[in-house]
């Protein structure tokens, strides 16, 4: 695992994700609060884009705990199963590759451990023993962007009243969905609202027919049927120019100008931008 690209990648993406989270923070505040209260552990938004996060699975009391790498999640086999587990201090976590969803690896968010280059052989394992109480977040480098993330909760922190199954992830998502749908609806309707505003603010009415005229029109309509839309009159040109007396000099100048421009740009694009820039495929 290349330190440079992996770590830079994480930092930058997390920053961006932070920005995205801030955008929905206001609306999602209540939801996040609920999630924290229910699961008892604050993952700080780590699981907000992880589709298979379904609370913390309690595996306390075991010396060795297995997490599958490459389970159905996030639109393909891009998940850890289970995404979050609770273990006792001193437990060894064994990650076992399913061989599905392409090549994966396990990389700690804080750089504490890494399984190295992503691989896709089924049965591959990687293990790590967790001694200290706390939360260890990790991800798969190639599939971080699509939400292949997990966490190990070590010890009893936040456990107890309230239960373990916080449905925070899905609730927050639907909240986001509503926000999205609401903004779309509003934006699509905005021209209508604006048109209605223009129509009813009174100006149009002022130039429209008076009540008397309306009544008059109504009477006409009753007598003669609905109004027929009349077209604007056809305007005769100021001067008629026939085929034989018309030489499009202006058009000729314009198209010749266009031709010169195109030829110049073509030469520049082909010989300077393209052939002047190597390397190029030669076989």
């Amino acid at each position: 695992m290349s330190g440079r690209s992996g770590i830079d990648g994480l930092t930058r993406r997390e920053l961006l994700r932070g920005g995205a989270a801030a955008g929905t923070a206001a609306a999602g505040l209540a939801a996040t609060g609920t999630a924290t209260a229910q699961s008892g552990v604050d993952f700080d938004g780590w699981f907000s884009d992880v589709s298979n996060y379904d609370g913390i699975v309690d595996r306390r009391g075991q010396d060795e705990v297995t997490v599958e790498v490459g389970v159905q999640a996030n639109g393909s086999d891009w998940g850890f199963g289970p995404a979050a587990v609770r273990v006792d201090p001193g437990t060894t976590v064994v990650w076992e590759w399913t061989g599905r969803g392409g090549a994966h690896n396990v990389v700690a968010e804080n750089d504490g451990y890494s399984s190295g280059t992503a691989v896709n052989e089924a049965g591959e394992t990687f293990e790590q023993t967790f001694e200290e109480t706390g939360i260890s977040k990790y991800f798969c480098d190639p599939h971080l962007a699509v939400g292949m993330k997990g966490a190990i909760v070590i010890g009893d922190m936040g456990a107890g009243a309230g239960g373990e199954d916080g449905g925070g992830g899905s609730f927050q998502l639907s909240q986001e969905g509503w926000l999205l749908a609401g903004s779309f609806g509003l934006a699509v309707a905005s021209p209508l609202i604006f048109a209605a505003f223009l129509r009813f603010r009174g100006r149009d009415r002022a130039v429209g027919p008076s009540d008397e005229t309306r009544n008059q029109l109504k009477r006409v309509e009753e007598r003669e049927g609905p109004p027929v839309a009349e077209e604007a009159p056809v305007e005769a040109p100021a001067q008629e120019i026939e085929h034989d007396e018309y030489d499009p000099w202006g058009t000729l100048s314009l198209v010749i100008g266009y031709l010169l421009l195109v030829v110049t740009l073509w030469v520049f694009m082909y010989f300077v931008e393209f052939l002047g820039r190597g390397p190029t495929v030669i076989g």
Binding site: S2, S5, S76, G102, A103, N120, P142
Partner: peptide, 13 residues
């Protein structure tokens, strides 16, 4: 090439 890396290229140049 596979989702979302080049082998080699991504992990090592």
């Amino acid at each position: 090439a596979q989702q979302f890396q080049f082998i080699p290229g991504t992990s090592q140049p």
